[in-house]
């Protein structure tokens, strides 16, 4: 399974429900794009640091989590400084840094299950319009998470089989049989889900149901 980036804890942000956190983040992040004053942006950045630290994570941990983002930000800041000017570079780095810290604070304090619920609620209107089926969408997300280790497993199995036959295996020699095998397995999983009658298909498109067990056969079983 893939481990979530969320961490357990009991900070105020952990206790806050997922929906207001996400709404707050979206509003703050959008608002920051309309702010150009470096003093305000520096305040936002400091606020981001405070909020991220308030989750109980140490600065070292936060730094480790956001190392990739920080490096990209440094490159962008440098590019801005050389191509535009220092003030723009500072504003961009402070703004994106503040948003990254706030967003990471939400990610750290909200479990995947909580976010899932919000996502399902967001599907609601689209579901009522008949555009989407929340149950089936949720199933697809769950399946995707489950399929990742399955793909890794299959890749290892193919590699081992090829090594046993004395083959080194190019990218193509791995990719093609791997995709074929996981496609076949995904279809088997789908058929198994159908056989269990989940998720309930919506009317009209429902496949013909398998015939029920005949009563006389049922009667024969003790």
């Amino acid at each position: 399974m893939i481990a979530s980036l969320a961490r357990p804890g009991s900070s105020p942000l952990h206790r806050l429900a997922a929906a207001p956190k996400l709404a707050g983040l979206a509003i703050t992040a959008t608002a920051l794009f309309f702010v150009d004053d470096p003093r305000l942006l520096a305040t936002a950045f400091a606020l981001g640091l405070t909020v991220a630290r308030s989750t109980g994570a140490h600065f070292a941990e936060i730094g480790r989590d956001l190392a990739g983002a920080a490096m990209a930000l440094a490159v962008l800041g440098l590019a801005d400084w050389l191509l535009v000017d220092g003030a723009t570079a500072l504003a961009v780095v402070l703004r994106l840094g503040a948003i990254a810290l706030l967003a990471h604070a939400v990610t750290m304090t909200t479990t995947t299950a909580e976010l899932f619920e919000v996502l399902e609620r967001l599907f609601g209107p689209a579901e009522r319009l008949g555009l989407i089926d929340a149950g089936r969408a949720a199933l697809t997300l769950t399946l995707a998470i489950r399929f990742v280790p399955l793909i890794v497993e299959e890749a290892q199995a193919i590699r081992e089989a090829q090594a046993a036959r004395g083959l080194d295996g190019s990218v193509l020699a791995l990719a093609v049989p791997l995709l074929v095998r996981v496609i076949v397995r995904s279809e088997a999983v789908a058929d198994a889900i159908d056989a269990r009658g989940f998720p309930p298909e919506r009317a009209a498109t429902a496949p013909p149901r398998p015939p029920a067990i005949r009563p006389e056969i049922e009667a024969d079983t003790p």
């Binding site: 969320a6 990254a100 976010l115 997300l141």
Partner: peptide, 28 residues
């Protein structure tokens, strides 16, 4: 869209273990 939803759900599914909401406001 499923991958993007997984990013939003805070799972480190992008290259280099990136994920979470910070990605959505990032430059890329």
């Amino acid at each position: 869209s499923v991958v993007i939803a997984l990013v939003a759900l805070g799972l480190p599914v992008l290259a280099g273990g990136r994920g979470g909401l910070a990605v959505f406001a990032g430059p890329t």
